[in-house]
Amino acid sequence: MVFKNKVVVITGGSEGIGKALVEAFIAQGAKVATCGRNYDKLYMLQSIHAGKPLMVQAADVSNETDCKNFINAVIKVYGTIDILINNAGISMRSLFKETSIETLQRLMDVNFWGAVYCTKFALPYIIQTKGTLLGVSSIAGYRGLPGRCGYSASKFAMNGWLEALRTELMDEGVNVMWVCPGFTASNIRNVALNKDAKPQGESPLDESKLMTAEECAQHIMKAIEKRKRTLVLTAQGKETVWMNKLFPSLTDKLIKRFFYKDGELVK
């Protein structure tokens, strides 16, 4: 029970990987706080774990004030923070030439700025506890993916920002890391934004064949326990990262073949 009585803050904990992390840390005896935009889902989550140390608060991480209020509420309830997991995020699926600026701004606001805001307010407490700061990134943060230019941009930004923080905080005893789950079964593709910044409402992948959110959560917890630098999950994800480093031109062609069919974006 490595995480027993540790205060773990997880953004975007109402579904998907975030929800799986919430439940996994509760099972380990941690004191958990999470936020999300859908209060009904948060209320249901809290009801399922009634009597357990779980704090929920409705918040949009793209809003700086919401993030500040959420972290302040965590401190009021638990007094400190040991682990911050910046998990809240949205995806997209549309070609850049067809994509509205609004879509790209929304991706950066949630995926990058949401992590920045929560970290800014939580960091003094994480420094005190010599804890862990984690960002849930993506293979798209290592390799730009077609149809996901804004998503890739936001995850590249997250990775670079966290790498800078890791160096800045080396003498503070804080572990800074990011995790790239690869394709994981979740709702993120159903709510991925289309060219007009509206949820596309469907997944282009067979979700039943993907790693489950629960399995992903277990890998993340083990990485935090070992205070790893980075974690890339799935064989496909690892292959993509290394192929892109060693054979970038070939990887361009392989990525094109994976995402396109007869000249049309299908994934």
Rank of each mutant, 00 (worst) to 15 (best):
96 F>V: 11
47 S>R: 15
89 G>M: 15
51 G>L: 11
50 A>E: 13
45 L>Y: 07
39 Y>H: 05
58 A>I: 01
78 Y>D: 00
93 R>Y: 12
76 K>F: 14
84 L>N: 00
84 L>I: 12
51 G>D: 05
44 M>F: 11
80 T>I: 13
66 D>F: 06
40 D>A: 12
83 I>S: 02
60 D>Y: 12
74 V>I: 12
79 G>D: 05
44 M>Q: 14
67 C>P: 08
59 A>W: 14
59 A>P: 12
56 V>K: 01
79 G>C: 03
46 Q>S: 12
44 M>D: 14
43 Y>V: 03
46 Q>L: 01
97 K>L: 11
68 K>L: 13
91 S>W: 01
56 V>A: 01
43 Y>Q: 01
94 S>N: 07
65 T>R: 11
69 N>P: 06
39 Y>C: 00
68 K>G: 12
51 G>I: 04
62 S>P: 14
38 N>D: 15
61 V>R: 03
41 K>E: 11
90 I>A: 09
92 M>Q: 15
89 G>S: 15
42 L>P: 08
57 Q>M: 12
97 K>P: 03
62 S>V: 10
46 Q>W: 01
100 S>A: 06
49 H>V: 03
96 F>E: 03
92 M>V: 09
38 N>G: 11
58 A>N: 05
54 L>D: 00
53 P>E: 07
72 N>C: 09
95 L>H: 05
44 M>G: 07
61 V>E: 07
60 D>I: 02
50 A>D: 14
47 S>C: 14
78 Y>P: 00
56 V>Y: 04
76 K>V: 11
87 N>W: 10
79 G>W: 02
76 K>Y: 13
84 L>R: 05
89 G>E: 06
44 M>R: 15
77 V>N: 15
54 L>E: 01
52 K>A: 04
82 D>M: 02
62 S>F: 06
